[in-house]
Design a protein around this nucleic acid. Structure first.
Lengths: 179, 179
DNA sequence: GCAGCATATGCACATGGTTGCATACAATAA
DNA sequence: TTATTGTATGCAACCATGTGCATATGCTGC
């Protein structure tokens, strides 16, 4: 259901084809949401069947027609409802935790690789976050609240990533994972 | 694949029936991993077909037979391989983020409900974590490393939860979500 | 005496997501 | 010249997970 909501949000902002949405995900929304082109096309078709979006087929020569989707009032209602319904608490299910429970069988060398690899990914993520922040939100408080809102998600992402990194550093120090 | 690994880990620790595993999840592992009884029975059956576990059927009267599963050497190998392969970076896909991107359509009242509800859940989770820590890990450094390992996952859970709470508090202060 | 829970397993269906494959052409780079 | 990338859509199969239902009985508490 959440993918549907995300699609409705982005279509509300501006009508788009499946391909356009894919690009939006890849460009500005990758740290927030992601979906394969398959998932997007399928969901848009379903939403069309349900009347949540309408579409206009724009012919092109030499290429498949562009299907431009636009949110309908039914779609707006659906979105509104979703926004007003509190979300389920997210399920915790981290495979990494499982590895810690198998400590005895987990070779120290593999552990080092795992944790340092993860740490590097997290660092890269942080760099991305910082770049996005500088580019889009260099002065968030001069923005109106609705433009500023996405900045909050970025900030949370940053902090959670930082917490992860601190944790990894502590463990590698304590359990001697750096050989 | 991770559920399979988790099952292998817990079976390695001690042979068990599907039901036993379910109870282990509910008791000691809920904050780490969870799965419905359906998922467990189905996966155990599949693993049996693949030879990763063997089973002994213990008849009982008046009740379905107990099928006690035990890890095989093929299962051990599989687990070993899983432990040695670094995990994929976890996918970020938080529906809450989507709501922030729909700020304009998100009624302040719904936002308050959402965030304060979430905050409460997080507080409860923290309480649970602290209780587990006191009960199982009151003196982690006196434990051998392999017993202490699960404590690290608990610590990470705590810190991430705290980070979330701080973030919520900041937002509600800044954007005035507390009426 | 009966409701509800614990024990113990399982089928069937639905939803959400991934992966592989297919089509078709234009523009750009090697 | 050929290979790759970008535009644009879609089918089919599969994997992971969740939900509802079914079965059968013993034990515990009201």
């Amino acid at each position: 259901m959440s993918l549907r909501a995300v699609l409705l949000i982005t279509l509300k902002d501006e009508p788009a084809t499946g391909y356009d949405v894919l690009k939006r995900f890849q460009k500005g929304l990758a740290h927030v949401w992601n979906a394969s082109h398959q998932q997007i096309y399928r969901e848009l078709e379903r939403m069309y069947q349900l009347g949540l979006v309408e579409r206009e087929t724009v012919p092109q020569d030499g290429r498949p027609n562009r299907k431009v989707y636009r949110i309908t009032s039914e779609g707006e209602t659906e979105l509104q409802q979703w926004l007003e319904t509190p979300l389920d608490p997210p399920v915790v299910r981290l495979p990494l935790y499982a590895k810690f429970f198998a400590w005895e069988s987990w070779p120290a060398e593999a552990r080092t690789r795992e944790l340092s690899g993860l740490r590097q990914q997290l660092e890269e993520r942080l760099t991305t976050y910082r770049a996005i922040e500088q580019y889009w939100f260099s002065d968030p408080w001069s923005m109106p609240a609705e433009k500023r809102a996405p900045w909050h998600t970025l900030r949370l992402g940053q902090r959670l990533t930082e917490t992860w990194i601190e944790w990894i550093d502590e463990i590698t120090e304590q359990e001697g994972s750096t050989p």
